[in-house]
């Protein structure tokens, strides 16, 4: 299997404050990969570096075989069209309805007819488990879980190869959180996408993630899957394994 993301010796500095000190890892195609770590360990920073929202100081980071360090605008937009991002609170555009939020990328970047855009958007709406009656609601009328689902539908609209999720289950009730986990696995299986997520949720970690990194102390503390973590002897890291 080929690698979707290759990070080599990533160093991130904010002024004199070093956040990452030489991170190296690879994410394989079709994986659900987790970025774990305590608060302030730089998980979200790492995610933001992958999606071109933030620059790292040195090292090399390749996303879909493209080096993201010095990217021209055109190339960057091409790359952006191949991934979808779900932000922690959905980040839906508050002036647009759910359907408009989902379909805006198709409207702006493709020459699809309006009816085709609507069909595609409604299909994605259904795929993420929202009722069709939610299509004309505005973000302020949605619950937290629905916002995340709508945000996921927006992220999926262009059939991305890569899906980035920032704490997808935080702020959801346990039932919704597990449903969301199942949804992500089902979408990965159906659409064959690679999923990279920042998460704190122990259930997500043990039931959804194929592999993950644990960041801490500016370095990678652990890289592997849940079984390896359970058999490892590092007590600090075992906190991530549901206490079993």
């Amino acid at each position: 299997m080929s690698s979707v993301i290759v990070a080599k010796n990533i160093v991130t500095r904010f002024g004199s404050n070093i956040v990452h000190d030489g991170l190296s890892f690879e994410i394989k195609k079709g994986e659900i990969f987790g970025l774990l770590g305590g608060s302030g360990s730089g998980k979200t920073t790492l995610l933001r570096e992958m999606i071109l929202l933030q620059k790292y100081s040195s090292g090399s980071l390749k996303v879909l075989d493209i080096d993201v360090k010095k990217l021209k605008d055109k190339k960057a937009n091409e790359l952006r069209s191949r991934w979808g991002v779900l932000f922690q609170f959905g980040a839906l555009f508050s002036s647009l309805s759910v359907l408009e939020n989902i379909s805006i990328a198709l409207k702006e970047y493709t020459n699809l007819s309006n009816s085709a855009i609507e069909k595609a958007a409604l299909m994605k709406l259904k795929m993420v488990g929202l009722p069709q009656s939610a299509a004309h609601l505005y973000p302020s009328e949605l619950s937290g879980g629905m916002k995340k689902r709508a945000g996921l539908a927006r992220a999926l609209i262009r059939d991305p190869k890569l899906l980035f999720l920032d704490e997808p289950t935080s702020g959801l009730d346990p039932k919704s959180a597990r449903d969301f986990d199942e949804l992500i696995v089902a979408l990965r299986d159906a659409l064959g996408i690679t999923v990279i997520m920042v998460t704190h949720d122990k259930d997500t970690i043990s039931s959804v993630l194929d592999r993950f990194v644990i960041l801490g102390n500016k370095k990678i503390q652990f890289l592997g899957d849940i079984e390896e973590l359970r058999t490892s002897d590092n007590e600090n890291l075992k906190e991530f394994t549901n206490g079993k």
Binding site: K119, L122, M123, K126, M127, Q132
Partner: peptide, 15 residues
């Protein structure tokens, strides 16, 4: 086939 099934089951009704 698998993706087709997913899409078919999620095919939207007229809204």
């Amino acid at each position: 086939i698998s993706l087709y099934e997913v899409c078919l089951s999620n095919f939207p009704k007229e809204i």
